[in-house]
Design a binder for these strands. Sequence first.
DNA 1: AACACCATTGATAACGATGTCAGTTTATTT
DNA 2: AAATAAACTGACATCGTTATCAATGGTGTT
Lengths: 337, 337
Amino acid sequence: MNKATIKDVALVAEVSVKTVSRVLNNEPNVRPVLQDRVHAAVKTLGFKRNPLARGLRGQQSFIITLLYSNPNPGYILELQNGALNRCIQEGYNLQIHPCDHNSADLISSIESIVQYSTQDGFILTHPLCDNKALTDLLDEKGIPFARISPFVHEHPSPYVYSNDEQAAFDMTNYLISLGHTKIGFIKGHPDFGASQKRFNGYQRALESVNIALDDNLIKQGLFTFESGESCARQLLNQAEKPTAIFASNDYMAAGVLKVSAQMKINVPAELSIVGYDDAPVSKQIWPSITTIKQPIYSIAEHAVEKLIRKIKKQPFDDIQTEFDCELVLRNSSSPCA
Amino acid sequence: MNKATIKDVALVAEVSVKTVSRVLNNEPNVRPVLQDRVHAAVKTLGFKRNPLARGLRGQQSFIITLLYSNPNPGYILELQNGALNRCIQEGYNLQIHPCDHNSADLISSIESIVQYSTQDGFILTHPLCDNKALTDLLDEKGIPFARISPFVHEHPSPYVYSNDEQAAFDMTNYLISLGHTKIGFIKGHPDFGASQKRFNGYQRALESVNIALDDNLIKQGLFTFESGESCARQLLNQAEKPTAIFASNDYMAAGVLKVSAQMKINVPAELSIVGYDDAPVSKQIWPSITTIKQPIYSIAEHAVEKLIRKIKKQPFDDIQTEFDCELVLRNSSSPCA
DNA sequence: AACACCATTGATAACGATGTCAGTTTATTT
DNA sequence: AAATAAACTGACATCGTTATCAATGGTGTT
């Protein structure tokens, strides 16, 4: 019943506990014969090292905390799964910590988890990774971290991101290639750096084909369904209607879809609508929404990998890693009539 | 920089480490004077007990693992947040472990996490909690667990659930009260016990007003958008069309909405559609979907509470706790024309 | 006054792993 | 063959906490 300890292994393998430890940690200078004996004993006993004991002795916990503040459940779950997968591979555990990036006591709440439970490092997601007070806190405590999609880059910690600007550029170009010239844009919440990047991509695409930016076609949204709805009303109630609308996320695109339905505007025949994020709703709505899929799972995996290297003080190739997004063409977009 | 240990506290409070430990663990027989000294020392040093050392010595990890296999991101996140909240309150950490309930090596994968990392208990969610092989494994290893929404109840471990049958009964009655008599039903995935319960509620409601069950109005879905779509096609392409459709979850209801749009059936004027789960999509679609909201957060909190009592071998009032669901009336349902 | 009893306290050993360091082989050099 | 270097091995201390158990002192009983 009771789990085997390193002592039991030593007994069975007829070596000292230290030698067992050496084998388990791939330390050099152990005779192959003994290595085999140890491995055999480990196998017959079904031995697994006790992470608590390891952590206590080595002053580490093998725990990585994923910090997020994001209203998109699909995104978070993908992130968790990717991070978790790499953590398990590396023998780490993942601790999750949802929080509110607007909350006044964000810092104190994180300070308390830093004290209560020990963690070897943090993964900071957007927009938390741009919170100076937070990064200062972690720096001060000497806790390593990796960032996902930061907007501000001036920190020596590694970060991973997807090329939002390029993706938005590509999407806008796709709409242009369908013949659209009056393309509305609904910006994301200003707290998120991604909002700016997506808008930049849109802007750059229009400039590249010499379409002048039209302020009447650009509205400020908040990443919510309701904000998409209200921006759509503004966009579609003016004389010069757009023939396509690019919403900075799928929730807002869904809001545009609602307004179109209410105004009896046929999508995509009369109005193309595209979103961003490949949120579940984009598939669960009719017409399904053309959107952009970020490789969130891979991004999370990679962030964990970089973080673990940082924790182990191993060198990593590059402080930053960029991932490409993918256009997902669905039924909400079509050539301009 | 280095964190204070119990030894430092003992030094400052001028007592032995054991006395500090006693105070921290609320053990009896320590003079109030010393208790105060210890508390003061803890405060000035900002001392927090090291969970690793505690766990190692006490043969426990203060970790609870949440096991889930569920395709609904919103549901999972609520579950996590509820469980996490109670865990933190109780001084535990939450470890998450997504898995596939259909996977052949489900058991071996769980066996490995049981060995690799130590956990004090498991929260099993639906439908994993009905997996005999899994519960047998945990029983054999002597690891306590609590279950969320089990279908099979024959186990002495505590469980928490929402009254799905009653909620489905209420929803069906709501449709009946709107004048509907031809009410279609799309069943959920047969692997999930909830599917059966929801169907039972529908059945009981019809019986209570003497409406005969019509097999042509009952279709087997799989909880996916696509399955909702295909069931809706079957339901709406027959001569005797239903005037209302009750889908066992919101994804399928969204599928019905798609088919209705394609068939130019006006929702809710010509067809009322209701779902279940209060998934994000139910708000992000037009018309928004009338649905049922389970108090998932509370359910998760309560499951953790019961589990911790079980771990600490404290008595709990009742092995089961039932929570009520709530009807959320939105725009996809209206009186029968 | 002697005794038992109980509340209070602390010295020390565990928990299961890894780091230090010294001792014992074995290989290499002369 | 002797000297030296290198490879190998294990005894023991250590991480921060809690459990065991013995020692202390005060109270009440006879």
